[in-house]
Computed example of a mutant assay.
Amino acid sequence: MKKLNIYFTAGIPMLNDTGKVAQLVQESGADMMEIGIPYSDPVADGPIIQQAHDLALKNGMTIKILFEQLAEIKDTVTIPKVLMGYLNPVIQFGFEKFCQKCKEVGIYGLILPDLPPVEFEKKYGEILKKYNLNFIFLVTPETSNERILYLDSLSSGFLYAVSSSSTTGNESSNLTNEDYLNRLSQLPLKNSVYVGFGIKNKNDFELVTEKSQGGIIGTAFVNVLLQNTDWEQKVKQYITSIKG
């Protein structure tokens, strides 16, 4: 069974909608979710997710508020929840304090794309282990086999395979980069591979999961939240259209 992982930014469309979105993602059949921590300079993200970050920050979203919201859904939203963000706000909050709060509210793992693997090994890996948190690294088509194996050895939960070296939601994301997906499928990886960036519909999802264990949808889903006043209904329809 191929896994569907849905990303959305915390604190949109309105500040207190995070829990409601998470509940709908679970009810609609997704296997996992990534909840984005809004940040003022999300360099790896395209315009739609940048717009979501801006809106969430305008709505007043903070890490403290996010943990309060996550505590409220801890017992009802039981599919794995991953927090995705940038290192700077986490360090400002306090890395160990952040990990401790993650454990308290039932977080499965973290994705911090700008955390260097060397720093992870020297400093942060032990803290994550202490609080039983997975950490997911990203690889791209340009990542060498040797480095993919290295990042896989540090990762737990899954390995995030970026479909192309671009920002999220890029229309030119090459989902059918067969050489890359073949290469990943032939390496002796310890983690499942989830492909992300550019997946928009059922066809895309089926395409990337022919040679991987899961697909991650972010920009297309965030767009549903941003563009529709009746987003609750649209969210269900959208996820069901991919999983159905």
Rank of each mutant, 00 (worst) to 15 (best):
residue 2 K to H: 15
residue 2 K to A: 15
residue 5 N to S: 15
residue 9 T to Y: 00
residue 9 T to Q: 08
residue 12 I to A: 10
residue 13 P to Y: 03
residue 13 P to L: 03
residue 15 L to T: 01
residue 16 N to V: 12
residue 20 K to V: 15
residue 21 V to R: 04
residue 21 V to I: 15
residue 22 A to S: 13
residue 23 Q to L: 07
residue 26 Q to N: 06
residue 28 S to F: 01
residue 30 A to D: 04
residue 30 A to R: 01
residue 32 M to Y: 10
residue 32 M to T: 14
residue 35 I to Q: 03
residue 39 Y to Q: 00
residue 39 Y to H: 14
residue 43 V to A: 06
residue 44 A to F: 00
residue 47 P to Q: 02
residue 48 I to L: 09
residue 48 I to C: 05
residue 51 Q to S: 14
residue 51 Q to T: 12
residue 55 L to V: 03
residue 55 L to P: 10
residue 56 A to H: 11
residue 59 N to H: 01
residue 59 N to T: 07
residue 61 M to H: 10
residue 61 M to V: 06
residue 61 M to F: 02
residue 62 T to M: 13
residue 65 I to E: 12
residue 67 F to N: 12
residue 69 Q to A: 07
residue 69 Q to D: 03
residue 71 A to Q: 15
residue 72 E to T: 13
residue 76 T to H: 04
residue 76 T to N: 06
residue 76 T to L: 02
residue 80 P to H: 11
residue 82 V to P: 06
residue 85 G to N: 03
residue 86 Y to K: 05
residue 86 Y to Q: 00
residue 89 P to D: 10
residue 99 C to M: 04
residue 105 V to K: 00
residue 105 V to S: 04
residue 106 G to A: 11
residue 109 G to D: 01
residue 114 D to M: 12
residue 117 P to N: 09
residue 117 P to H: 12
residue 118 V to P: 05
residue 120 F to R: 07
residue 122 K to E: 13
residue 126 E to Y: 02
residue 128 L to T: 03
residue 128 L to G: 05
residue 130 K to Q: 10
residue 138 L to G: 00
residue 142 E to M: 14
residue 143 T to E: 08
residue 146 E to M: 13
residue 146 E to I: 12
residue 147 R to G: 04
residue 148 I to W: 06
residue 150 Y to E: 07
residue 150 Y to T: 09
residue 151 L to M: 05
residue 151 L to Q: 06
residue 158 F to H: 13
residue 159 L to C: 08
residue 162 V to N: 10
residue 164 S to D: 15
residue 165 S to P: 07
residue 167 T to A: 15
residue 170 N to P: 02
residue 172 S to H: 14
residue 180 Y to V: 05
residue 180 Y to T: 04
residue 181 L to Y: 11
residue 183 R to K: 15
residue 188 P to C: 06
residue 188 P to N: 11
residue 189 L to M: 14
residue 189 L to K: 13
residue 192 S to P: 08
residue 192 S to W: 08
residue 193 V to G: 03
residue 196 G to W: 00
residue 197 F to C: 03
residue 198 G to D: 09
residue 201 N to Q: 07
residue 204 D to E: 09
residue 204 D to L: 11
residue 205 F to E: 04
residue 207 L to H: 09
residue 207 L to S: 14
residue 207 L to K: 15
residue 208 V to Q: 01
residue 211 K to E: 08
residue 211 K to R: 13
residue 211 K to H: 10
residue 213 Q to K: 11
residue 219 T to Q: 12
residue 221 F to V: 02
residue 222 V to M: 04
residue 223 N to M: 01
residue 224 V to A: 09
residue 237 Q to Y: 03
residue 239 I to G: 01
residue 239 I to Y: 01
residue 240 T to E: 15
residue 241 S to D: 08
residue 242 I to Q: 01
residue 242 I to E: 02
